[in-house]
Each structure stands twice: as C-alpha cells, then as structure tokens.
Amino acid sequence: MKRIEKRKITNLIALSASILCAALGLALLFLILYHVLVKGLESFSLGLFTQDPAPPNRAEAGGLRSAFLGQGLLTTAAVLAGVPLGVLGGTFLAEYGRDSKFCRLLSQLCDMAVSIPSIVIGTFVYAMLVKPFGGFNGWAGATALAIIILPVVIRTTEEMMTMIPWTLREAAFALGAPYHKVITSVVWRASINGIFTGILLAIARVAGETAPLLFTSFNSSFFRFNLSGSVPSLTVSIYQYAASPYESWISLAWAAAFMVTIMVLFLNILGRVLIKLRTRG
C-alpha cells in the first residue's frame, strides 16, 4: 500500500509540473497572438492594401500596398524556383538514389540545411548576388528564400514518396511501365497531398523570414512590379517601422505583424487539415 501511495504522489508531482510547463508555454504563445491581434486590428484599415507608406506623422496613415506586392513577388519567385527543384531533388533521392550511400548522406545534409540560421543564408546570398551586382535587389531576396525552401521541400517529397509501398511500384512495373511513368503516374499521384502539404509549410516558413531579406532585397517604399532594385516586404517593414520613433509607423508595423501572422497561421492550418484528410482517406 505504501509503495502505491508513494507512486501516486510522484505521479501527481510529475503531472502538475508538466501541466504547469504546458500552460506557461501556451500562455506565452496566446499572449503574443492576443497582442498582435489586438494591436493589429487597431491599426487595421482598408488603406493598408490601397496606399503606399506615408512619411511619418502625417494626417494620412499610409498603407503597405508596396510591401504586400513585394512580399508576393519575392515569395512567388522563390516558390517558382525552389519547389520544382525541391520536388525533383526529393524524387531523385527517394527513387533513383534509394540504394546509394551518397544519396543517404545528401538527405542527411538536407536535414541539416533545414536548420541553418536564415541570417547565414542571407549573408551568403549578399556575398554572391548583392555585392557583385552593386546593390540590394529582389532577385537576391527571392534566391535567399528559395534556398530556405529547397531542403524542406526535398525532404518532405522524399519522405512522402518513401512511404508509398513498393508493391504499388512493382504492380506498375509488372504492367510494363518504364520507371519515369511509374513515378509520375503512380508514386506522385499517391503522395501528392503530402508533397503539397510540405510545400505549403515551406511557404509558411519563408513568409515570416526577415533576416535573409534584410541582406538581399532590403526595403523600399515604391510600388513596382519588378524584382530588380530593392523590394519591400512585410517582414522587413515590421523591422524598420517598429524600430522607428514615429507613432504612425509603429502602428503600420503592428498592422504588418497582424497580416503576416494571419497568413502564416492560415498556411499552417491549411497544411494540417490536408495532412488529416490524407491520413483519413
């Protein structure tokens, strides 16, 4: 009896400690979300989407039209470059390279590349594409984001494709299908939801990146449909406006933070929902 009581007490202590830690973590998270939502909604107006940033403390608050466009351009370019490369790379590792030690090593390197601090990637791209070309430009920004996307997409693609049982491939081979047909018409089809989810989560990740853009596309307040020269983005705008002494700019920073949070949250939730749908179906 005594031993059982002792166990019960130990259990109670461990349980309350873990509940407390979980509550603390969640409380911090919700505090941040709550703050961003309240402050963001206060500064939110339709002008955000229709106006460009105004000089500080004028009558008109100004908006972030240019930053939305810039962010969209940077992310789109990064996805267009990073996703096809990543999907093809992951496919290679999962199919043609499955028996090669070198490919296993590559796949482990990708895992490491996922956790490289993004500022390191920023400075690398700065040295390769900013300094030699004489100034900040959007192409460098998109490249930095693409480099962040790439290992994430490679690894998710590889993992999703490895999960498809070999018998399914054998069944296609047994019908006389060449390997590339087996991959495109059977394996990709069977793993498309998982791969798509990985892509969404990768986009969600770069949507919140500031450091690599600070070194590459930097910021501007021009509304331009062009990636040459400095390109504004929501995250760098947050960084600059939040550090400014002007109240109207700080308010803009809150609005930008609100929008970035909403976008990342939406992409993440969409990703999770897709994973659920896939595991159910």
Binding site: T167, L168, E170, A171, A174, S185, V186, R189, A190
Partner: peptide, 10 residues
Amino acid sequence: MVFQKPTPFP
C-alpha cells in the same frame, strides 16, 4: 503479374 495484396493505383 497479380500480387498477394490488391494494388489499386490511386
């Protein structure tokens, strides 16, 4: 060839 377990393609 027909396998042990059914292998419907997706």
